[in-house]
């Protein structure tokens, strides 16, 4: 009996071990080290470090730059989450009704997702600074004449547009998978009962694709908070740091300003915010899932 338990745990370790070791090595251990750094005054290069207690955290809380990136990131998350999920769901529903070119269309909408974010930032930078004015001249639409990446208000929307363009296909696919898992019998039964198109969508389709909604909301919120690549390659955080996401500012502090432990303190606070958001969100959405 004892031998059996021993064998069983050996198998368990053999299966789970490799994953766990690499995970501990490259994610968990570095993360713990970062937390330790946040209580020190290391600049990333120096070999001498001192414990400074909560000093980094106190400085972060009074840092107006940090407050500004948090407000930018929250607005960005709100805008992209709404844009991605509403448009993604609409696209998925539209591509699920049996159009002739649906496979081609699905591919077309998914294509931007497979491109690297850094490349996308550079291309859109080109499009926004060079093509938008050209279109503006042709069509006389005044809004396209402004230099979008130089004005804070426009730069914000430029980032939103590029993000939605880039990742929409991904969320569309998840919603599409959810829609295709719906059973025809339920829809037919509702139709016979006299439920209209809109009624059917609200009372049957939406509750049943709740798992997809949970996943999409979770991913879009997390990815929104962690956004870095597009801010880096499209606007470099500018104009005047107004499009600096939290990740981007942490990166800047750590590698351009050599404030490594200060950046670590920011990252730990960021991690706590993110954890709070995900836990609350998953708890709320999980509760409302139903099964057919």
């Amino acid at each position: 009996m004892n031998k059996q338990i021993y064998r069983k745990s050996l198998v368990y370790i053999a299966f789970v071990g490799p994953m766990l070791i690499l995970f501990l090595l490259f994610i968990f251990l570095p993360f713990i080290r970062s937390i330790i750094y946040s209580f020190q005054d290391w600049n990333g290069i120096n070999s001498h470090t001192h414990w400074v207690g909560w000093k980094n955290y106190r400085n972060v809380l009074t840092d107006t730059d940090f407050a500004r990136t948090i407000s930018f990131t929250l607005k960005y998350v709100l805008a992209t989450v709404i844009g991605l999920n509403v448009l993604g769901l609409i696209l998925a529903v539209a591509l699920n009704v049996g159009l002739k070119s649906r496979n081609l269309l699905r591919t077309a909408f998914f294509l931007p997702t497979v491109m690297g974010t850094v490349i996308i930032g550079f291309i859109w930078n080109f499009i926004i600074t060079r093509l938008f004015p050209q279109i503006g001249e042709l069509t006389g639409i005044g809004i396209l004449h402004s230099s979008w990446l130089a004005l804070p208000k426009y730069a914000f929307w430029a980032i939103i547009i590029v993000t939605v363009w880039h990742t929409l296909g991904y969320y569309m696919i998840i919603y599409l998978a959810g829609l295709q898992g719906l059973s025809h019998e339920l829809m037919e039964a509702a139709e016979i009962d006299g439920a209209g198109r809109i009624k059917r969508f609200w009372s049957i389709v939406l509750p049943l694709i709740r798992p997809s909604i949970t996943i999409c909301l979770f991913l879009s919120i997390i990815n929104g908070f962690k956004s870095f690549d597009i801010n880096y390659s499209l606007t470099m955080g500018g104009p005047y740091g107004t499009t600096e996401s939290i990740s981007y500012q942490i990166f800047q502090d750590a590698f351009s300003k050599d404030l490594f432990s200060y950046a670590s303190a920011k990252a730990v606070i960021f991690f706590l915010i993110l954890t709070l958001f995900s836990v609350v969100q998953v708890a709320i959405l999980k509760r409302k899932e139903v099964e057919a």
């Binding site: 766990l20 251990l29 570095p30 993360f31 080290r33 970062s34 870095f228 750590a254 991690f271």
Partner: peptide, 20 residues
């Protein structure tokens, strides 16, 4: 393992380099 999904990559970048 799942909870580490919310760890921003920038925070583990330098320490991961040290491990490497």
């Amino acid at each position: 393992v799942l909870s580490s999904l919310v760890i921003p990559f920038q925070i583990i970048m330098v320490p991961a380099l040290k491990v490497a």
